[in-house]
Write a protein that binds this DNA or RNA. Structure first.
Length: 572
RNA sequence: CCGAGUGUAGCGCAGUCUGGUUAGCGCAUCUGCUUUGGGAGCAGAGGGUCGUAGGUUCGAAUCCUACCACUCGGACCA
């Protein structure tokens, strides 16, 4: 490609509203331009990169035996009503009506559509397992898009769906997809980790996320120092810290005027936050009568409630909702700042770590008072003990191999075993070998294609711009002439080189604007992350050489002017 | 959705508090000349409904009201 015929939209200055480095560099290098919140134009340069990501994803999906198809982005409401998600899915689902006032939505995901397709087309166990994928634009009306294409409303996703006659088959394909995903992220040159994950609203059982490690990531990932355990903090099990300590202090009521938070109480009494137990009141239901009730959750003061874990408890309402201050006062007789587990009439759920505390402080259910020297059993009846907190760095690994540390990750892939969640509600059945109707089992497998471009930049950049991992660069090599308008020798050499490179299967960018300055061209090439640069000038040509510069290492060397193609081939 | 902040040329900003000729600067763009081995210099040019609507005033980018958009933090998130 000649630069004179290609939109190079580089910018010297960083746009003010871009916060993370990938967003800044994507704008500066001219990969994308914003249209509106969460909506982006992909410029020619950006699209070249996006296509390379798609190409790798497509090759590996095909290799893994998945079949490519394409489903509509606009989906009829009826399908979503069948699975109940028309009501359940929140504001992220963009709903609208056509001219006949029929209801539709823009597809945020395609379980309904593929299941509808499968129930019509697949009638026999002989056609199973089947695995289909598409690479397509999705729309999710995020309340707050941010970080450029990292969290946009419209984005490109590779989504795959598999269908099975039994659990073994589902597990087999799930494992195959896990392997394929590792191949994909290896080929993309990303530093990533597969992590055990929560299933979220898509439902089903068993899932892994693939995270690219980066400080700008929006997820917390727990790793064990022994290397055996990796899980999203949403899911990571907080194991019991061990035997409860021995009670040594006397149970007393202390005045704590004005102290409302754990911090206040700990400071007032000169103890660590971990010695204070906090009590949170949430909505729940009576399992026998199904009436709405309140439930108390007790955690150590230095720990955070994990809402996902809490929601999974049968007695707690989903989604998790905190009781209002008035409800707390009515039920307990004290304000939220002074409540504790002693004498509560509602069900009490105690976190494992809180259950192991001894000689702790807690609210006295009387405004302005707390108990100190409190101990379970001796002073306060202990309720149900559950894991309801977020793990923190230093917690023991659930796999027993050392302790946990926590890093930030960008979720670029997610695989699920859906089971019969969609096939059952949509009645997607096949005849088994006995001629009996059997509900198919399903798996689904997503990769955020546009997000990968941003994640790759987060991991591969320097002060001068992007440094693409092998295989993602928009061009293989830049040809940079010096004083082309003055030197016929430089012009001829560059033209020859360009033809040779194109003829040898390279994708070069010839910076052919005659009067462009060297510094500007090099700065652009570096910003765009072109991995190899060939500088052609009269000075070198006099002795038959051109200069080669490597983007990643910054190393320069002189190479024979007529040996450039061989040299680049030798780089691999 | 809650809280905070910002809207002035393609990008980055000043001017707004304290209303007053023709709204300014840097980068980018175009023309000419001189330059050219790591983001050139000089001279000139184009580009603005100052987010939108209403109001106050002799006069509004500036003050008031409402709305909109965007950004950040939170909440939410296959």
């Amino acid at each position: 490609m000649r630069a004179s015929r290609f939109l190079i939209a580089t910018q010297k200055e960083t746009p003010a509203d871009a916060v993370v480095v990938s967003h800044q560099l994507m704008l500066r290098a001219g990969l994308i331009r914003k249209m509106a919140a969460g909506l982006y134009n992909w410029l020619p340069l950006g699209l070249k990169v996006l296509r390379k990501v798609e190409h790798i994803v497509r090759e590996e999906m095909n290799r893994a035996g998945s079949q490519e198809l394409l489903m509509p982005m606009v989906q009829p409401a009826e399908l979503w009503q069948e699975t109940g998600r028309w009501q359940e899915y929140g504001g992220e689902l963009l709903r609208f009506k056509d001219r006949h006032t029929n209801e539709f939505c823009l597809g945020p995901t395609h379980e309904e559509v593929i299941t509808d397709l499968a129930r019509v087309e697949i009638k026999s166990y002989k056609n199973l397992p089947a695995n289909f994928y598409q690479i397509q634009t999705k729309f999710r009306d995020e309340t707050r898009p941010r970080f450029g294409v990292m969290r946009s409303r419209e984005f490109i996703m590779k989504d795959a769906y598999s269908f099975h006659i039994n659990e073994e088959s589902l597990q087999q394909t799930y494992d195959d997809m896990h392997t394929a995903y590792c191949r994909i992220f290896d080929r993309l040159g990303l530093d990533y980790r597969p992590v055990a994950a929560d299933n979220g609203s898509i439902g089903g059982s068993g899932s892994h996320e693939f995270h690219v490690l980066a400080d700008s990531g929006e997820d917390d990932i727990a790793f064990s120092t022994g290397g055996q355990y990796t899980a999203n903090v949403e899911l990571a099990e907080a194991v019991s810290p061990g035997e409860r300590g021995v009670a040594t202090e006397t149970f007393t009521e202390v005045a704590t005027p004005g102290a409302k938070t754990v911090e206040d109480v700990a400071q007032l009494l000169g103890v660590d936050n971990s010695k204070v137990l906090k009590t949170l009141i949430v909505r729940g239901k009576n399992l026998e009568t199904d009436e709405d009730i309140l439930v108390a959750l007790v955690l150590r003061g230095d720990h955070e409630l994990n809402e996902i874990k809490a929601e999974k408890l049968d007695i707690i309402a989903e989604p998790l909702q905190f009781a209002s201050e008035e409800e707390v006062k009515a039920a307990v007789g004290a304000s939220p700042g002074s409540i504790g587990p002693k004498g509560l009439t509602m069900p009490v759920i105690v976190d494992r770590a809180a259950a192991a505390s001894a000689d702790f402080l807690c609210g006295a259910n009387k405004d302005g008072f707390h108990f100190s020297g409190a101990n379970w059993e001796r002073d306060i009846e202990i309720g149900r003990v559950e894991d309801i907190r977020n793990v923190v760095a230093g917690d023991p690994s659930p796999a027993g191999d050392g302790v946990l540390e926590i890093k930030r990750g960008i979720e670029v892939g997610h695989i699920f075993q859906l089971g019969d969640k969609y096939s059952k509600s949509m009645n997607a059945t096949v005849l088994d070998e006995n001629g009996k109707q059997t509900t198919m089992l399903m798996g689904c497998y997503g990769i955020g294609v546009t997000r990968i471009v941003a994640a790759a930049i987060e991991q591969n950049h320097d002060d001068n711009g992007i440094i693409w991992p092998n295989g993602l660069a928009p061009f293989d090599v830049a040809i940079v002439p010096i004083n082309m308008h003055k030197s016929e020798a430089v012009t001829n050499q560059c033209e020859t080189l360009y033809e040779q490179l194109v003829g040898s299967g390279f994708d070069p960018l010839f910076m052919d604007e005659a009067k462009a300055r060297l510094g500007v061209m090099l700065a652009d090439a570096e910003l765009m992350g072109i991995p190899n640069v060939i500088i052609v000038g009269d000075r070198g040509l006099e002795s038959g050489v051109v200069e080669y510069k490597n983007r990643r290492t910054g190393e320069k060397q002189e190479i024979p002017a007529n040996g450039v193609v061989e040299f680049l081939k030798s780089l691999g």
